[in-house]
């Protein structure tokens, strides 16, 4: 991300925070191109998540009555989303050691799991270094495009 972008993001967040005060809303979320910015009072402070646009419906303004976003793991800033439809495997072979489990420390690029579609085995990497805090899929079960697979924080 360029310095320009960062500056714009900061300005945008500042504007949204101001708007939040003026309107009395608890949460505002906007999405542009591949960037989504959400500003909320509780429980999360400020989050700025880049996600594939197709993976999430565009939400311009969340009414105060909306259910808390924290319940939806796909909205979690640490969510690793499936880039394809297929079957998820947590190990390289049946009965093998899982690539990553809850509590595993991973480096960016480490394989978290494999998604198979049409005998194409796709290694899904950790998008960032951190700790796996949630595993949201079961070994050998189908996953959809955009489905949250794991949370890495």
């Amino acid at each position: 991300m360029s310095a320009d972008h960062k500056l714009n993001d900061h300005d945008l967040i500042r504007d949204l925070a101001k708007l939040l005060d003026e309107t009395g809303l608890t949460e505002i979320e906007i999405e542009r191109d591949d960037t989504r910015v959400r500003v909320a009072r509780q429980p999360a402070a400020v989050s700025n998540v880049s996600v594939p646009v197709a993976a999430a419906p565009a939400a311009m303004l969340q009414p105060a009555a909306a259910p808390p976003r924290a319940a939806d793991p796909s909205q979690h800033p640490g969510a690793v989303l499936s880039p394809m439809v297929g079957t998820a495997y947590r190990a390289g072979e049946p009965g093998g050691m899982p690539f990553a489990d809850v509590g595993s420390k991973v480096k960016a690029g480490d394989t978290l799991l494999i998604i198979e579609a049409m005998k194409t085995m796709n290694h899904i990497p950790a998008p960032r270094s951190g700790t796996v805090t949630q595993v949201l899929i079961e070994d050998g079960h189908p996953v959809e495009f955009g489905e949250p697979l794991m949370i890495v924080e």
């Binding site: 690029g109 049409m118 005998k119 194409t120 796709n122 290694h123 990497p125």
Partner: peptide, 20 residues
């Protein structure tokens, strides 16, 4: 999806792997 058979018997196999 990608086996090649001759008279119903497998003569070749394909394994595709992807990595970011």
């Amino acid at each position: 999806p990608n086996d090649l058979l001759v008279d119903g018997r497998k003569i070749a196999g394909i394994l595709i792997e992807g990595e970011f």
